[in-house]
Amino acid sequence: MSKRLLSALEYPNADNVNLSEEKTIRSIVVWLELNKINGAKTSTLNGLKDVGSKDWVVHFDAYKDQLGCPPLESQQEEIHWLLGKAIHLETSKNKNIYLQHAVENIRVSSAPKVIAENPLDKLDFRSKEFQDRINQLAKTLKIVPYPDPLVTLQAVRKIVCTRLAPDCVEHPDKYIAKGTPFPFQDADLGFDLNDPVLNKAAKILRMLYIQDLRNLQTKANELIVGVQSVTANPKTDTKLGQVGR
């Protein structure tokens, strides 16, 4: 996965990088900081640049603090987080291009604007305090933090709404999906991306889509049943019946 992110960031020779090698990892960190992140203080940057030094780890710790990286289990995960951060910065640079096609924007252009007062808007989402608390919350709920705390917050919200609402806690049976598990790995995807990892990712997206569709259909059915309670009046009259010759 990390290699994919590296090649997405156009890291030179990304396919042949050996991520278990300390030296390589150090040079990746420097490359990321210089070319993509630009978030280190000058002193830290100088420390990081000296990849051979035994103090490198100290500078790396300082660097992580400066970027607001949450405490993680292994160096692999830290690198992964850094890569995520870089990708995030890279995509935010081109945000306008991507957002042109976002559902919200398409909707906004066609609907009149209503500005509602929301006290949450006054929060500083970029502050370190906010970020720390979100990461703490994520850790408690066993969610992997994302560099953008707002995205992490969305994940937190999803878990809280679907699993921790009062009714869910009292009657967990109602909410935990039942039924026979379906071996989706064997299911036909319908197309081939010539890459097992991408295929798996596409399959997962398909499952999520099917789940969304199921929820929509269930809501439609509920609506129909609601209307039926007003309109339904089935009648039969056996006197009308006639069996043919």
């Binding site: 039926q228 339904a232 009648k235 019946g241 010759r245």
Partner: peptide
């Protein structure tokens, strides 16, 4: 030449022709 036991008049039939199973749903 058999005849059904669900009472229908010509107005019901017009609606059923237009609505298909939505008619059956509406009528319950």
């Amino acid at each position: 030449g058999s005849k059904g036991i669900i009472p229908m008049n010509s107005k019901d039939l017009e609606e059923a022709l237009e609505m298909g199973m939505d008619w059956s749903l509406r009528e319950g």
